[in-house]
Nucleic acid binder design. Structure first.
Lengths: 241, 241
DNA sequence: CATGGATTATGATTTAGATCAAATCGTTTC
DNA sequence: GAAACGATTTGATCTAAATCATAATCCATG
């Protein structure tokens, strides 16, 4: 890792740019940064409720979230909708579309959001000459695969309470990694959307929030969640029976 | 798509090599094929029950299955195991490990298998100068992400019978794509492993196999499955209620 | 700021699938 | 080839979460 020191210096340089720091984590030289600027030129904002892309639309770009909150969901033939993920600042969306050249899910903003559009073909070409960029792209895709496997474990093996605990802890950890409070945050999605993501019904989500509150694990006020006993939630997760 | 004709010719050239055709789908020139041969030099065989890799082992290579059958699974703290996938000839395993430089799941051979080990760093470097290889690598990773989302929909929204139907149709389709019979195949995994993958108990899997048989949808003889009414299974999948 | 449509909370009842239990079938081992 | 073990099938019972139902609350918009 001879590059280590240089990378650490650059970390400071690009600390203000969420894309560089979070999406395609740091490690570029000044010349490379210029190229990246060209790449990430196209910024867009998406209003609450607006679709960033829809199933079936031709794929050309992936999207890095600069700020805001999204959900992605797939639609089954019979009309059932399943929320496949919630995405926040620094996350990259649209990676699932590369294989088919067509978006395979819908992406909706759950609040006013700003994204930057990254033409995938250009990114791929750039990655040719920029080993760090290439590595980061692979890392981002790989992380999504690994995370999806965790979600499968959750959907396939956990009980409702465990799913909710895992969900809250994951949200907390992600907010925390972005510099926001780990203990207190605003939910951007409805109980129904949480339920859809976790394979539960909204009533079950609501009931368990109430139960967690009664047990002193969290405090719920509509969409504001406070984690009162993080370890309690973790214990709930790790234990059998 | 000016490359189209060339690619089609090459398709024939490498039609005998499962790796080239299926894993990193076709599109290489003769010179590039030589380089690929260097890359894919390391072949290994894995006996039934043997681990190809385990959670926590350092990541260096991804693995292309030349023949045989694998399952991958993750272990929860409390001992619960969840099967995250079944993998056959042409599939690539280990992509989830790139992000952490460490394998995040176990890969076990369910029958005698042959794999070829692809040092990821070298593949990544090669992809620098071989646009088609680069594109295919991205496609393979993207396909896994998209497929995982389908699995989430299955685990989160489908009833037990629908999951089994989806599972059987997916297996059938994959065998078919590899030149085997779509209508008749041998299961390599136990009812318990199917259950683990689908978020069901082995008794439920067994009961539904029996039910499907009674309804004339399939014929089951231990591990040999015959799809008697593919459309019936598809109907089961697409319908509400 | 009033009105109507979402969203949430909570209770009563139902049900799909889990759990518990036992018998059968297969296959590996000694 | 008998013993032992694992895998499968099938039945009876139980339970976690779904469904149905109602009320309360929120909040979006004219």
């Amino acid at each position: 890792m001879k590059e280590g020191n240089i990378l650490n210096q650059l970390k400071v340089v690009c600390s203000l740019c969420s894309l560089r720091e979070l999406c395609l984590p740091i490690g570029f030289g000044p010349a490379e940064l210029q190229q990246l600027d060209v790449l990430t030129g196209s910024k867009r904002h998406v209003k609450r409720g607006e679709y960033l892309y829809r199933t079936g639309m031709p794929f050309a770009s992936i999207y890095a979230i600069r700020g805001g909150f999204f959900k992605t969901s797939i639609l089954h033939e019979d009309g059932r909708e399943h929320v496949t993920g919630f995405h926040m600042m620094g996350d990259i969306m649209g990676l699932d579309a590369i294989s088919t050249d067509m978006h395979g899910c819908d992406a909706v903003a759950l609040e006013y959001s700003e994204i930057c559009e990254i033409p995938f073909e250009r990114l791929s070409e750039l990655s040719m000459t920029m080993p760090v960029l290439r590595h980061n792209l692979h890392k981002v895709m790989s992380r999504e695969i690994a995370f999806d496997h965790e979600v499968m474990l959750m959907l396939g093996k956990m009980r409702a309470e465990e799913r909710l605990a895992a969900f809250l802890l994951n949200l907390s950890q992600r907010f925390s990694a972005r510099g926001y409070s780990a203990a207190s945050f605003q939910l951007r999605m409805t109980r129904e959307e949480i339920g859809s993501y976790l394979g539960l019904k909204l009533e079950t989500v609501s009931r368990i929030f109430s139960k967690f509150q009664d047990e002193g694990l969290i405090a719920v006020q509509k969409k504001l969640i406070e984690l009162k006993d993080e370890n309690g939630l973790k214990r709930l997760l790790g234990s059998l029976a």
